[in-house]
Write a protein that binds this DNA or RNA. Structure first.
Lengths: 193, 193
DNA sequence: CCTTTCGCATACCATCGGTATGTGAAGTAA
DNA sequence: TTACTTCACATACCGATGGTATGCGAAAGG
C-alpha cells in the first residue's frame, strides 16, 4: 500500500488538519481527543504516537497557523520597495489576515491560555513578530523612524493589531476595517522622524 | 452563630478570594474544583450553590479583578484637571496596574479563552475600556484629538496596553517600563489635533 | 412549636486526558 | 525465502475532573 514514512506523514497531516479545524471552530477546551481521532479516522494510540499530548498537538497547529499568516505578511511587505511602505503594508496585511475567525481563535485566544503567555510569545516572535521588530529596527537605523527602543514599540503595535483584529471579526463591518486601517496608519505615521 | 445572610455572604466571599488566588497563581485549567473548595474550607455543594459552574466562578473573579483595576485607573485620571492629562494618566495607570502578574493571568490570558472573546470583551468594556472610549470621545468633541472614529482607536490602544503589560511582566525591568510608558505617550500624543 | 426554607454536605456519575500493552505489517539481514 | 527486528498504530484500561441528584440540619416564619 505504501512505505512507512509516507503512511506516517499522512497520518500526522490528517491529525493536524482535523484538529485545527475542530480547535478553530469550537475552541481548544471544547474539543476532546476522541472527537479529533474520530475525525481523523485513527485512534488515540496514533495521536500519542505523533504528539506528546493534547497541548503539544495544539502547539503544532498554532505553529502552522502562525507560519501561514507570516507568509502572507512577508509577501505583502515584499511587494513594496521602500522600507517604510513595507512596514505599513505588512501591518495592514497582518490586520486583514488576523481577522479570519478560523485563525484568530487559535492564534490569539486559545494560544496564550493553552501554552502559557511566555511560550506563546516565543512562538509568535519566532514566526511573526520578529519581522515587525526587524522592520522597525531597520527603519530606526535608516533614520526614517525616531531613534527609540524598538522592543516596547514592537509589543505595543503587535498588541494593538491583535486586539483590533479580534474586535473586527466579532463586531466589525467593512467600514470598521477601513477605519481601523486608517487609525493604524496614523499611529504608524507618528513614528516617523 | 450568625444569620443566614451573613453566612451566605461569608462563604461566597471566601470562595471568590481563594479561587482568585489559585487562578492567579496556576491558571484556570490547572486548578481543580476540589482544590478550590478545600482551600475555602467548604465542599463542592457550597460552590454549586453559589455559582453555576467553574466558568461562572471564574467570571465572577474576573469581574472583581477588572473593577479593581478600573478603580485605580479612574482614580489616577481624576487626579488630573485637564481632560488630556486625564487620558494620559489613566493609560499610564492601566499599564502599571496590568503589569501585576496576579492580575494579568486572569484578566488577559485566561479571561478570553475561558469565557470566549465576546463575553470577555463585554466585561472589559463595561468595567474598563468604557472609560477609555468615553475619554477619547470627550477629547474628540473638545477638539483636542483629531476627529475620527473612536471605536477602532479604543481597541488599538487597549490592545497595545494589554500586550505591553504582559511583556513587561514576563521579561521587563524598570527600564523597560519607563521606555514603554514613553513610547505609549508618543503614540497618544500623535492623536492630538 | 411546627413547618418551611435554605445553605451546604455526601454520594455518585460520565467524560476526559493519559498510559500500558498488544499486534500486524514494513523493513532488514542471512 | 526465512527469521528477526522495528515501528505505526489499535485496544484496553486508569485516575482525575467537572457536574448532578439527593440528604440533612439549622435558621426563618407563622
Amino acid at each position: 500500500m505504501s512505505t512507512r514514512a509516507e503512511q506516517r506523514e499522512r497520518t500526522r497531516t490528517t491529525l493536524l488538519r482535523e484538529s485545527r479545524r475542530l480547535f478553530a471552530g469550537q475552541g481548544y477546551a471544547a474539543v476532546g481527543l476522541a472527537e479529533i481521532v474520530a475525525a481523523a479516522g485513527v485512534t488515540k494510540g496514533a495521536l500519542y504516537h505523533h504528539f506528546a499530548g493534547k497541548a503539544e498537538l495544539f502547539r503544532a497547529v498554532l505553529d502552522q497557523v502562525q507560519q501561514e499568516v507570516a507568509e502572507r505578511v512577508v509577501a505583502a511587505a515584499d511587494a513594496e520597495k521602500e522600507p517604510w511602505d513595507q512596514l505599513v503594508a505588512g501591518c495592514q496585511a497582518f490586520l486583514t489576515a488576523s481577522t479570519d475567525p478560523l485563525l484568530q481563535r487559535i492564534m490569539l485566544v486559545d494560544g496564550p491560555a493553552v501554552l502559557g503567555w511566555t511560550q506563546w510569545r516565543q512562538l509568535d516572535t519566532d514566526n511573526s513578530a520578529r519581522h515587525l521588530r526587524e522592520a522597525l529596527t531597520g527603519l530606526v537605523e535608516l533614520g526614517v523612524i525616531t531613534r527609540q527602543p524598538v522592543e516596547p514599540l514592537t509589543h505595543l503595535l503587535s498588541g494593538a493589531m491583535n486586539e483590533a483584529a479580534l474586535w473586527l471579526a466579532a463586531a466589525g463591518g467593512p467600514r470598521d476595517l477601513a477605519d481601523t486601517q486608517a487609525a493604524l496608519a496614523r499611529l504608524l505615521d507618528s513614528l516617523r522622524a
